[in-house]
């Protein structure tokens, strides 16, 4: 593999979990719910995916377990914020703290154990094409699932009735309620979808990126996914661009030496977080861009009048 090929492949591996988690959060936010617990759902997905795969030897079981773990965490958040109308910001933080603690507790005895890596797809013939082959036809299956999800979410959100209802609930829950749509039900489902995506993103980290379980291994990726949603101004296809950009910054530290960049390692590790701040400032400084797509009810609780 050439240097360029290696860099492109690592960018894809670094971007996929960001894109997955951000896509789920985007759907939840479009319904008007700000779930700051992405990091917590993601790390629970990572630990559940690793343990289930380790115990059964089947990565597919691990992936299902990760999705379920993410959804379980999401349902906890949804119950507290949607049914009991608790503050969404604080509840999201609680979800993250709980997820980091709980994953460390149940994953403790699995740390440093050899995991099973999800196999890459090989299509005879196509995967052997120089350069294009390994990049386009030789990724792990979750990369293709992620791409399909981005297209699917884009389609459902802007071309179907279900998507219209989702956005209506996110933009004006009082009107949506008056029209007879179940605001809480729609939001609950959107949050669950977000949890499933975050769980899958976590499994990607422990089954593809590293194939091992490490305490706190998400390392802020859930928060970067949240920033990505703002970066994308709540449009799915822009998420993909953002994820590749952030993924590229994230892997810079691994290629910096080969590229002849000589700065302290800690600076390169801090770079993704600094870039995130810069990008957030650039995007949010542009009022037009922000106002057009931000869900109007984002973060606001809804209690129907009776």
């Amino acid at each position: 593999m050439s240097m360029a090929e290696a860099i492109i492949v690592t960018i894809i591996v670094a971007s996929t979990p960001l894109l997955l988690a951000a896509l789920g959060e985007l759907v939840a936010e479009r319904s008007g719910v700000l779930n700051l617990g992405v990091e917590g759902m993601m790390i629970m997905g990572a630990v559940a995916g690793f343990i289930a795969t380790y115990e059964t030897g089947q990565p597919v079981v691990g992936i299902v377990a990760a999705i379920l773990a993410g959804m379980l965490m999401a349902s906890l958040f949804a119950f507290v914020t949607l049914v009991l109308v608790a503050n969404q910001v604080a509840s999201g933080l609680a979800l993250t703290l709980l997820g980091i603690g709980f994953s460390a507790l149940i994953g403790e005895s699995y740390a440093n154990k050899p995991g099973i890596k999800l196999a890459q797809i090989r299509i005879p013939g196509l995967s052997d094409i120089p350069f294009i082959g390994p990049i386009v036809f030789g990724q792990d299956p979750l990369v293709y699932v992620t791409i399909a999800l981005v297209i699917g979410v884009s389609y459902v959100m802007f071309r179907t009735r279900a998507g219209l209802i989702l956005r209506a609930v996110g933009d004006n829950h009082v009107s949506a309620h008056a029209l007879g749509y179940g605001v809480v039900r729609v939001r609950f489902l959107a949050v669950l979808f977000g949890g499933a995506c975050a769980g899958l993103a976590g499994a990607y980290l422990s089954l593809v990126s590293t194939s091992q379980w490490l305490d706190n291994m998400t390392a802020g990726r859930g928060w970067i996914a949240l920033a990505l949603v703002v970066f994308a101004t709540w449009l799915p296809w822009r998420l993909a661009i953002g994820a590749v950009l952030f993924g590229a910054v994230g892997i810079l530290q691994f290629h910096a030496q080969a590229l002849g960049i000589r700065v302290p390692a800690q600076f390169l590790s801090a770079l993704p977080y600094l870039i995130t701040i810069v990008v957030l400032v650039l995007i949010s400084g542009n009022r037009m861009l922000m106002r057009s797509n931000t869900p109007a009810m984002l973060g606001q609780s809804f209690v129907p009048d009776r």
């Binding site: 703290l97 709980l98 980091i100 603690g101 709980f102 507790l105």
Partner: peptide, 10 residues
């Protein structure tokens, strides 16, 4: 302890 802390906030 971290699990207790997360649960408590919830």
């Amino acid at each position: 302890g971290r699990v207790f802390q997360g649960l408590l906030l919830f």
